[in-house]
Design a binder for these strands. Structure first.
Lengths: 124, 124
DNA sequence: CGGAATCCCTAGGGATACTG
DNA sequence: CAGTATCCCTAGGGATTCCG
């Protein structure tokens, strides 16, 4: 559990995590873990995301194999995004992360206040 | 474990994770989990990080309470960074994440190749 | 040694308009 | 509906220089 060295962080790993843990990906994955979604459905359910950013996020996640894009031959076209089996394996790591954030947010906020106070004093 | 809804991702949580899971933070945390480090020690042990980026990363982590900065009154000054108790609680989530990356990297690479191949064909 | 300050530069985000 | 295309603009990274 707490081995001495733990795991190395090499460039490919960090690049992968950067692509999957970026600003909007967590929200998208969370949403698609619950149910498949249309593009505008996702857009509405994720506050403040722009169409451009959402498109880029979806492409990146699709390229990395964690979500799937399915075009339905209707008029007008409908597109359905869904999580893949690989994407589902991300659920646990992400949940662990979110649980950490939820649990320790108060401690972080206290730390921030202390830090900012010390900064102010340093200026005086 | 796999509750239906899992956890929400609100703005404060995402902001916190952004600050802690960014490009260089994982490497810094990993290093400081093993032992306290001087500034240039960290710099040498993290390939390709610049002094500016490292400074910014350390300040951010310090502000969020996961690392500590200690100035030793020597000549010339020495500065020692160490992980805090709060920072140590990050170890498990981060390890889970790195384990995921290590385990699924091959699948991700296959997905990328498939995606890129389909893209090429689409152009033709 | 451990930064801060400066300059430069580009990847990426927001807004808007257009399309199959 | 689900994007693509375009313009604009600024936050942030790299390189370099200077300081206590």
């Amino acid at each position: 559990m707490d081995t001495d060295d733990g795991l190395r962080i090499d460039a490919p790993h960090r690049e992968l995590l950067d692509q999957i843990l970026d600003k909007w990906s967590l929200s998208v994955l969370n949403e698609l873990c619950e149910r498949p979604c249309r593009f505008n459905e996702l857009r509405r359910s994720i506050p403040r995301v722009t169409q451009k950013s959402l498109t880029a996020t979806l492409r990146r996640l699709e390229r990395n194999g964690v979500i799937e894009r399915e075009v339905l031959a209707t008029r007008p076209v409908a597109v359905r995004y869904r999580i893949t089996p690989l994407g589902k394996t991300l659920r646990h790591p992400v949940d662990v992360l979110l649980a950490w954030a939820a649990q320790h947010m108060p401690a972080v906020e206290r730390a921030r206040e202390g830090f900012d106070t010390r900064e102010e004093e340093a200026v005086l």
